[in-house]
């Protein structure tokens, strides 16, 4: 079932088009991976989806409810969670306090600690003193406690050791297996494709590939060509 449906979305920065006519979906129980070189528009796309920056055109709907004009807080309460790039923990709050900020009705702190037991022994530690991996776990766990329907994750592997990235990817896969719709923006294509279901590749603000993750993983040459932003290929029909 499609939880997030994005149609013909365009986003500008400083009045210049950065994302143009993007269509994508994120389905319950699946991970949609968004790939692309630096500057392709991936982060701008997520910021437009969560309402950090306004969209110039198109629609964003969760379970049929259009949210493109709503404030970020409203989108969050409608079930859209965004794990931003850069591990945006509340630095002066402890791990436990970070989680309590996001605790929505019906959510339980135990869910967060069950996903990342590593955080349990660090619950009284200020978030600024956590390691990079622990901070990334914390922001994912924090987003989980908002009871999201759709989880947007931006570059969670940036600056982290491979073993931590694998740990995080496993956790994200588990969230999807539990029914969450995940939209994952990632630089490390191979790893993301290995846990993803559907892949989108962006180049110069447009989706130039829309298809199956497994298929793209088996065609490294095509992925390489798409990454380099070479010849634009038509999006695969579904």
């Amino acid at each position: 079932m499609s939880r997030l449906v994005v149609s013909n979305l365009s986003i500008n920065r400083a009045e210049l088009p950065v994302v143009t006519s993007v269509d994508l979906i994120a389905e319950s129980g699946a991970i949609s991976v968004v790939l692309g070189a630096n500057g392709a528009g991936k982060t701008t796309l997520l910021e437009g989806l969560s309402g950090i920056i306004p969209v110039a055109g198109g629609t964003i709907a969760i379970d049929g409810r259009e949210l493109q004009n709503a404030r970020p807080g409203t989108r969050s309460r409608e079930g859209l969670a965004h794990v931003e790039q850069g591990r945006t923990v509340f630095r002066q709050l402890t791990t436990d306090e970070n989680l309590r900020v996001s605790l929505h009705p019906g959510a339980d702190m135990a869910e967060a600690y069950a996903l990342f037991p590593e955080l349990l022994q660090r619950r009284a530690v200020k978030a600024s003193l956590l390691s990079g991996g622990e901070q990334q776990m914390l922001v994912i766990a924090r987003a989980l406690l908002t009871r999201p329907k759709v989880l947007l994750i931006d570059e969670m592997s940036a600056g982290l050791a491979p073993v931590i990235v694998t740990r995080l990817m496993t956790a994200v896969r588990k969230l999807a297996d539990d029914g969450l719709a995940v939209l994952l923006v990632e630089q490390f294509a191979a790893l993301a494709l290995s846990i993803g279901n559907r892949a989108y590749v962006m180049s110069r603000g447009r989706v130039v590939y829309d298809g199956d993750c497994a298929k793209l993983r088996q065609s490294p040459d095509e992925l390489h060509r798409l990454y380099l932003g070479g010849t634009e290929v038509p999006a695969e029909a579904n």
Partner: peptide, 15 residues
């Protein structure tokens, strides 16, 4: 306190 630290991150969590 969360809002004072990172207003946008707080808003994204529904604060």
């Amino acid at each position: 306190r969360a809002l004072a630290d990172r207003p946008m991150a707080a808003e994204l969590l529904g604060v």
